[in-house]
Design a binder for these strands. Sequence first.
DNA 1: GTCTATACATAGATAGAC
DNA 2: GTCTATCTATGTATAGAC
Lengths: 228, 228
Amino acid sequence: MKFETFKKSVQLSKEDICRDLLAQNRDRIKIKKEKVAVKNLVRILDAALSISNQKGFASMSLRDLSSEAGLSMGALYSYISSKEELLDMMQQQGRSLIVKILGEYLGDINDPLEKLKRGIQVHLYLSEVMQPWFYFSYMETKNLPKEVHKKSIEAELYTEQIFTEIIEAGIKEGRFRKSNPQMVSAALKALLQDWYLKRWKYERRKVSVEAYAEFIMDLVSSYLMAKE
Amino acid sequence: MKFETFKKSVQLSKEDICRDLLAQNRDRIKIKKEKVAVKNLVRILDAALSISNQKGFASMSLRDLSSEAGLSMGALYSYISSKEELLDMMQQQGRSLIVKILGEYLGDINDPLEKLKRGIQVHLYLSEVMQPWFYFSYMETKNLPKEVHKKSIEAELYTEQIFTEIIEAGIKEGRFRKSNPQMVSAALKALLQDWYLKRWKYERRKVSVEAYAEFIMDLVSSYLMAKE
DNA sequence: GTCTATACATAGATAGAC
DNA sequence: GTCTATCTATGTATAGAC
């Protein structure tokens, strides 16, 4: 599967995501007309991600945000009721989508090596499509309210667990050598995260997401399939 | 080399580091008595690292800092003249030390495999001794003034380059298989960084720094030494 | 050298006109 | 629905007493 194929198949238009988000937060958002609300939500969340990734969430003033989103302070506060709630919505926006996509693309594969390969690909492709969101989540959730932080740790462990299970299955079937599945998948996560955390590096070196996926797969499989 | 051995051999007392720092910033720091100045610098920088790693540098108020360091606002401002300057000193504090230690421990080894192993060890051990500093540098330098950010990118590339050269030498000597040294050392860096970025994970799982070093070495060497 | 008191800017948040 | 005007809290930074 090529990245372009994946990208088209996902088709996650920002409008669709924000419509879901609006539905889930119908009580907190004051604007009644869906069309208007969705349009402005897209602008607010886009702007928030962009500014946060430049100067950090804490340093983003709501004045910055309102002007970047093309709204007044008053209008902005019809969509969010506090900066913390904005953070919450930004997190919600990405999380549900990730779980959904991962399930779709991994559910029907049984061969461990194939599944591992597909898992690596889908992770990388997803983080490529949603780079600003992944970067933001990694960098910003660690501080702020502990509920948010806790959820982000759970998310890390959830995806790690997916890989751990694939590797365990592979060992059981004798396809992979005996090793520590949890350590391998922790390492794998670190490598997948490096892709969106050090974008500047890989862009500068003209490494494509496909090439990176292949490299990571080679690296991990040469360890898992080495003679004992 | 065991971690404990390394730790003792480094002997980087905070006082020594802060004495150097004081000498380098003699013009900006108002306090004349070295003994007093060093004592308080240690407290200020310790407190700053601690608070920043809890809530982020941007969210750390200088009131927080002054009370955590046990000084009044007025006194604090005799040591720094702005928050940005504090950031600068925090960076200085670590950087020179790292370059020095790396040179010491890697200079006299020639065998590529041995040198790679030692490089991984020293990196991990250093980041273990100075965990708060490494975490801070990774998480906080990306935003704030571009000069600071630039320096941190240079530091990343500098240490990466050390590994790249080791791997290149190994390939040339026929000890490692033909591969892309830059990609391998980028991956290696990501794995080394994961150690101090996800401390919560490895602590929870009771993974020692020695065990982690060995695992990383196995992973990378099984790739570098696989049959072509 | 260190303290208290205070100046001044900017942050988040709201009220009420349009 | 969106705007401008404004409130209050908190931030960085400094002056001057001790």
